[in-house]
Design a protein around this nucleic acid. Structure first.
Lengths: 208, 208
DNA sequence: CGGGTTGGCTAATGGGAGTAGCTTTTAGGC
DNA sequence: GCCTAAAAGCTACTCCCATTAGCCAACCCG
């Protein structure tokens, strides 16, 4: 009865591999049974290293979010403005293509109350910070930064989600569509910075 | 031993209610056991009306997609241009707020091969058509329509997904952020129609 | 009223999460 | 080099859920 030499980090990494192997649905279909099989161990043995399936899923989400943040930061060092935004967006989309399962894991909404989600919340905030830093170079007024960050996140995330989910037919043109979306976002953010008429909405809630 | 009076439609509707009751995670947590409980029936009885849990999920997704399409069409009759786009987007977002579980169901990517997914594929295509019809009023060149549709879908879907997933802090300002996003998209689509410099990319793939 | 169809049931299988308690390995102290 | 105690595995078990099989009652049609 030799030992498998597992520990928390190894188990989480194996889980991340299982998630990757499963394609876009890999995260949803993650199970302790699959991880145990990959580790060459009986399923209950995993509880020596992991509290529950929910914990394991959270841990996988955490490394995925951190990897995404890292990809974004390294793609934007030494860049600014539209260049930085294109680079960031492309890096994120590439990560999603290379690790569709892990990208799905980043969509987990951490519970704002649960202390167990604290590190995940923090990691998610850091990844949003990358967008904030890139948009800082556009010289937006303070009260518009949040709108711009949300729009950019929504656009990129929505595009990648739809793409991975098979929401786009005609695969050939997807790269161009992504470029067009990014140009729209860049133009929109730039317009927001200069208070263009089309984008002139005050904060007093004229809508809804 | 009285009868419960179930049939396919009733079961699917009960399932949709279960999904709604479960909030944003309602669709992921849909189970035959819950539907059976709500129907006041033993779980195996459901198999008289439904092929499997997977079938039931697909059926729920189908009604959700159709409801979303209906909400979009009725929000855009008699409107055009930016007005129509705002109305469509707001209708979709409202649907997601009122039925977060069902909205999540619409994110199912139908298998392009599986004949069982045919109706869902069709319904999804119809909902995309609504966006296409709205954007038609912008006078886009034919080879740009697809890019514009994708950008708009990505923006709206991404925003709603992030919002439902708790991705935005500071709940108060979310409505304004959504308006800003829509204005960006409207401006972007308009610019695409007039071949603005910022958005001038040809199809020969200058990127990636 | 009688029989077939239909809709419900109970019982049973299989698989996955999670718990309890046992055993062996292994690291450290002596 | 032992001896012990913690750590890491295992088997056996429970519970929950999906799904199948086969039974029985209710309804419909003549």
């Amino acid at each position: 009865m030799p030992r498998a030499g597992l520990n928390h980090a190894v188990v989480v990494n194996l889980a991340a591999q299982v998630v990757d192997d499963g394609g876009p649905r890999g995260f949803a279909e993650l199970s302790l049974a699959k991880v145990a099989a990959k580790a060459g161990v009986a399923a209950p043995s995993l509880y020596k290293h992991v509290g529950s399936l929910a914990d394991l899923r959270r841990d996988v989400a955490l490394i995925a979010v951190r990897e995404l943040t890292a990809a974004g930061t390294s793609a934007t060092v030494g860049r600014a403005g539209a260049d930085a935004l294109h680079s960031l967006a492309t890096a994120w989309r590439s990560y999603a293509h290379e690790h569709p399962g892990r990208y799905a894991a980043t969509q987990i909404g951490p519970d704002p109350e649960d202390p167990a989600d604290a590190r995940l919340r923090e990691a998610a905030a850091e990844s949003v910070q990358v967008v904030g830093a890139v948009l800082h170079g556009f010289g937006l007024p303070d009260d518009r930064v949040i709108d711009a960050v949300r729009a950019v996140r929504a656009g990129i995330h929505g595009f990648v989600t739809l793409e991975l989910g098979g929401g786009f037919r005609m695969r050939e043109d997807v790269d161009q569509s992504f470029t067009v979306l990014l140009d729209m976002l860049v133009a929109g953010v730039a317009a927001l910075a200069t208070s263009d008429t089309l984008l002139d909405h005050d904060a007093t809630g004229s809508h809804r």
